[in-house]
Write a protein that binds this DNA or RNA. Structure first.
Lengths: 124, 124
DNA sequence: CAAACAGTTGAACATCTGTTCATATATAAG
DNA sequence: CTTATATATGAACAGATGTTCAACTGTTTG
């Protein structure tokens, strides 16, 4: 029973080599996984979800968001920083205000697809 | 200067009432935000992203995933629990093994859309 | 039955994360 | 220049989270 499973480096469990090979052939890079995780981590917080939803309705300044979410401008600003870092929002300064809006249509797409999943998750 | 902005409960900042009304009219529920955040939080971790990607290639048992990601079966199992809780994966027992696969097409859609965003985020 | 294998689970620990608070920057108004 | 408003930022603290370790359940095999 000389299988093609090399058990030299360490003891190998009884696995499914074909399936494993199939995954390995897909060439999924470490940094792609990291980037995806970082993006979703940014989306994975209710305050930031609320901010993004609000910005999907209208362009808003920090002050507006602060009132809408009933949170301090500081807290909002900290979250906007993360949203900016993940390229989920853009901003422009106008006088004393800084107006934020969604960066592109991908963001709304992610929110929509996520919402659909949550609905199915609960209804069906 | 009697504005329609009621400053009774607490001192109000100079905001943009029209934009705020626009957001409030959208009726975005608290539990929708929570559900979305929970979903994305589950997606927001590189180990889980790798698991989901692997499962998008083939149905796999814990053992396979353990070898693919070079992690202990325990660590994998803990993460699979979260993925199950968010209805991102299904599973079936077959003998000693438990095989996992993606729950529905939404999951791949989210991964695809996320990947596109990450690519744009870096290239452009 | 006992032994081996596959998977799950709870506790513990280190790390990460969101909000608060104080402070700093920037623009506008007096 | 001084004051007020709008926003940003760093430190700090409490709460959340991922992996490890040990113990446990369930299935197959001898």
């Amino acid at each position: 029973m000389t299988e093609q499973n090399s058990a030299e480096t360490c003891k190998r469990r009884q696995v499914h080599p074909e399936s494993i090979a199939q995954v390995q052939a897909s060439d999924f890079r470490e940094d792609t996984a990291q980037g995806l995780a970082e993006l979703f981590r940014t989306l994975g917080e209710s305050t930031r979800v609320k901010i993004l939803h609000a910005l999907s309705c209208a362009e808003l300044c920090v002050c507006d968001l602060s009132e809408l979410l009933d949170m301090t401008p500081s807290a909002i600003s900290h979250q906007l920083r993360l949203l900016r870092a993940s390229k989920l929002v853009r901003f422009r300064r106008s006088g004393k205000n800084v107006f934020y809006r969604l960066d592109d249509e991908h963001v709304e797409g992610l929110l929509r697809q996520g919402t659909e999943h949550v609905r199915e998750e609960r209804n069906i």
